[in-house]
Simulated scan of single mutants.
Amino acid sequence: MAKSSRRSFLAGLVAASAWPLPSWADLGSPAFLSAGRAPSGQDMVAGLDLQGNRLFQQVLPGRGHAFCAHPRLPHVIAFARRPGRFAHVLDCRTGKTLAQLQPPDGYHFYGHGCFSTDGTRLFTTENDYENARGVIGVWSVQDTYQRIGSFSSGGIGPHDMAGLPDGSFVVANGGIETHPDTGRSKLNLATMQSNLSYLSEEGVLQDQITLSNDFRLNSIRHLAIAPDGTVAFAMQWQGDIGLDLPLAGLHKFGTPVRLLAEDDIRWREMKGYGGSIAFDHGGTHLAITSPRGNRLLVLDTASGSIQVEHVLSDVCGVAPQAQGWCATSGTGQILTIGAAQATLLKQTQFQWDNHLVAL
C-alpha cells in the first residue's frame, strides 16, 4: 500500500463518522493484554489495568498464545497456539469478532504478529509446512483484515516478530521444522539454524544474524525492542539440558550480536527455556522468564550480567511498566518486578498463558 493510499485510508476513517475514532481510552486505557483460562475452563483474552484488574475479557475458540494490538483502534488480534489456524480480530469495546483470519491451505500460524507503523496492515508469522519455509502473511485493515499477500520470513519457523522505530521489523526465525501431521515434533535438529531477519514492510531482507555453531541448537523465539531499536531475543535450547548456556542476547542493526552472561551458572536453572523477554522502559535492564525453571532473571544490558534471580512458580508473561515490569504466571499471579524484589499484585483464578503484551 503506497503512502498516499495509507493517508487516504486514515482520512477516510475520520470522514466516515462525525464522532472521533474509538480508541483504547474508551476501555479505560488498559495497560496489558494476556491470554488465560478462566475457572470455567474457557480460554479468554483479558485486558488488565496497572493494578491487575480485568477491564474486559473475551472468549477465544481455543488456547491463545500471543496478541498484537492496533496502535490506535481498540482491536486485538488473538493468535492460536502453534500449530493453530485461528487468529481472531476482536473489537474490545463490544466483544464483537470483526474478522476470523485463516492462513492458506498448507499453512498455519505461529502465534505472533505485528501491525505496520501506520496501522494499515497486519503481519503474521506462518509456516508453509509442505515446503518447510517461513512466511509473513500480510492483511489489510482497511479491507476488514483481508489477506493481500505474503513474503518469505528469511528462515524456517518464524515465531515472534516486532516492529522497529524506523518502520521495518525483525523476525525471530526459530529454525525448527515442524509439520501438523507430527504435532510439535522437531524434524530437522541435525541441521537446524535459527536467525534474526531484518525485513522492510515490503519483505526485502535488509540484514540477517545467525549464531555460531556452538549455539546452533539455541532456537531464537521471542523478541523485545528497546527505545533505540536494540533487539533483545530469548532462546530455547534444543540439546541436552543442564548446560550453562545463555538464553538471551542483544543485537542492533549493523553491529555484532551479544550473548548475555555467557558464564553464569544461573542459566542452568532456566531448564533451557526462555519464555518471554522485555526491556524496562529505559532499555537499561532486561527481564527474561522460564515457566519450566520457575525463574525470572533481570539482566543489565550494558554489562550483560544477571543482576537478580527471582524464583516464581510457572512464571512466563512479562511486560514493562513505569518502574520495572509486570509479570503473570500459570498459577494466577500478577506481580510487579522491581530492581531487587518481586511483589504479588493480585492473585486471580485465571491460569495466565505465555505472554503479557503491553499496550
Results as ranks from 00 to 15, higher is better:
100 Q>T: 08
241 I>T: 05
225 I>Y: 13
68 C>N: 09
70 H>C: 03
175 G>I: 05
5 S>F: 14
154 G>Q: 03
343 T>M: 13
130 E>S: 11
161 M>A: 12
31 A>S: 09
146 Q>Y: 06
359 L>I: 09
251 H>P: 06
40 S>A: 09
203 G>W: 11
119 G>Q: 01
228 D>Y: 13
206 Q>K: 14
241 I>P: 07
353 D>E: 10
140 S>Y: 13
13 L>P: 04
230 T>S: 12
2 A>V: 15
306 I>L: 05
281 H>A: 10
151 F>Q: 02
106 G>V: 09
63 R>I: 12
124 T>A: 06
232 A>R: 08
81 R>K: 05
223 L>Q: 06
233 F>T: 11
125 T>A: 01
176 I>W: 03
160 D>Q: 02
326 C>K: 00
269 E>H: 05
273 Y>E: 01
65 H>G: 04
150 S>E: 08
185 S>D: 15
36 G>L: 01
152 S>Y: 05
197 S>D: 06
283 G>I: 03
277 I>T: 01
251 H>Y: 06
339 A>L: 09
110 Y>N: 02
264 D>Q: 01
83 P>I: 07
137 G>H: 05
345 L>W: 14
322 A>K: 14
191 T>W: 11
210 T>I: 14
86 F>R: 05
188 N>W: 03
183 G>K: 01
75 H>R: 06
300 D>E: 08
112 H>W: 05
64 G>N: 07
237 W>M: 04
